[in-house]
C-alpha cells in the first residue's frame, strides 16, 4: 500500500509525461486490439480457401459414360493424394453456369461445357503433386494426361497463393507497426520513469541514507510505470468495447467473417491487451531503473 501511494503521488506530479506514455499505450493497444482479430479472421479465411483447394479434371467433350467411369476409377484407386472427388456432369455444369450468366448461355444455345471431376487433395499442400500425378510434365514442359479421356487438369493454386500472400503482407505490416508502437510505448514509459526518478532524486537519496533496500526504492517506480500502462490498457479496452458494440456487433449478423470461430474471443482479447500493457510498462520502468537508479 505504501508503494502504491508513493507511485500515485509521483504520477500526479509527473502528469504530462505520464499522460504521453499512457496515450502511447492506448494507441498501441488499440492497434493490437483491432488487428489481432483481423489477422486471425483473414488467416482463418485463407485457411478455408486452402482447404477448398481443388483440382478440376476436365474430360474431353466427347467423353462417353464408360470414359467417365474409367476416370472415376483411376481417381479412386490409382492416383495418390486424392481426398474427395465430386463429379459435375455436363448438364449440371451447364445449369450452374446458366443460372450465373443466363444471357450468355442463351446465346450459346448448345452446351460447350465438359464433364468435370472436382478433386480435393488429401492435404492442401499436395495439390500440385495431385495435378502432376494426373497430368505429368513432359521433358518439353508441356503436360500430358494419364488418361486419354482427360482433356486438361487445372488447379486454382494462383488464387489461393494470392490470398495467402495478401494475408502475409497484412501480417508483416501490422507486425512491424505493432513492434514500433510497442517500442515507442516502452520508451515513453521509460522516459516517464526517468523524469520521475529525477524529480524524486532527493527522496531516493534519503531512502538510501536511512537504509531502504534496493527493492523498496524501486517498487514505487515500477508501480508507477505499471499504473500508467494499466490505465492505458484499460482505456484501450474501453474504446475497443465501445467499438465492438457500436460497429462490429450490428455488422456481425451479415458478415460471416466477424463471427467466424477462429476469431479470438473478446474476453481473451481483453486479457491479452491488459497483459501486454502491463508487460510493456514493466519493461519501460525496468529499463529506466537499470540505467538511472544506481542503488
Amino acid at each position: 500500500m505504501f508503494f502504491v501511494r508513493e507511485a500515485w503521488r509521483s504520477l500526479q506530479r509527473n502528469a504530462v509525461p505520464s499522460f504521453a506514455a499512457m496515450a502511447s499505450v492506448v494507441v498501441t493497444m488499440l492497434v493490437l486490439g483491432v488487428f489481432i482479430p483481423i489477422i486471425q479472421a483473414t488467416t482463418g479465411a485463407a485457411n478455408e480457401v486452402r482447404s477448398k483447394v481443388l483440382v478440376d479434371v476436365y474430360l474431353k467433350t466427347n467423353a462417353k459414360d464408360a470414359d467417365v467411369e474409367r476416370v472415376r476409377q483411376v481417381l479412386a484407386e490409382d492416383t495418390p493424394h486424392v481426398g474427395n472427388v465430386t463429379f459435375v456432369s455436363k448438364a449440371d455444369a451447364y445449369a450452374e453456369e446458366k443460372k450465373r450468366n443466363p444471357e450468355a448461355y442463351e446465346l450459346l444455345g448448345s452446351n460447350p461445357l465438359p464433364d468435370t471431376f472436382r478433386v480435393t487433395p488429401d492435404k492442401p499442400e499436395n495439390v500440385q503433386a495431385l495435378r502432376d500425378a494426373l497430368a505429368p510434365l513432359t521433358a518439353s514442359g508441356a503436360r500430358t494426361t494419364t488418361d486419354p479421356a482427360i482433356e486438361e487438369v487445372r488447379n486454382r493454386r494462383e488464387e489461393t497463393d494470392k490470398i495467402l500472400s495478401a494475408t502475409r503482407v497484412v501480417k508483416l505490416t501490422v507486425g512491424v507497426l505493432a513492434v514500433l508502437l510497442v517500442l515507442a510505448s516502452v520508451l515513453l514509459i521509460a522516459n516517464t520513469i526517468r523524469l520521475s526518478l529525477f524529480a524524486r532524486r532527493r527522496e531516493v537519496e534519503v531512502m538510501k541514507l536511512v537504509g531502504a533496500t534496493d527493492w523498496f526504492i524501486r517498487w514505487p517506480f515500477i508501480i508507477e510505470g505499471i499504473l500508467v500502462g494499466a490505465m492505458g490498457g484499460i482505456m484501450a479496452v474501453l474504446l475497443l468495447g465501445v467499438g465492438k458494440v457500436a460497429l462490429l456487433d450490428p455488422l456481425a449478423a451479415d458478415f460471416a467473417l466477424l463471427s467466424s470461430p477462429e476469431t479470438i474471443n473478446f474476453a481473451l482479447l481483453i486479457a491479452v491487451i491488459l497483459g501486454a500493457s502491463v508487460g510493456v510498462a514493466a519493461l519501460g520502468s525496468g529499463l529506466s531503473l537499470r540505467r538511472f537508479l544506481r542503488v
Binding site: 527522496e203 534519503v206 538510501k208 541514507l209 536511512v210 537504509g211 531502504a212 533496500t213 534496493d214 523498496f216
Partner: peptide, 17 residues
C-alpha cells in the same frame, strides 16, 4: 541498507523532503 539502519546521518543541507 541493513548496515545503514544502524547509522544516523545529518548533513549541512538537512536533506528534508
Amino acid at each position: 541498507p541493513y548496515y545503514r539502519r544502524n547509522l544516523g546521518v545529518v548533513f549541512q543541507d538537512f536533506k528534508l523532503l
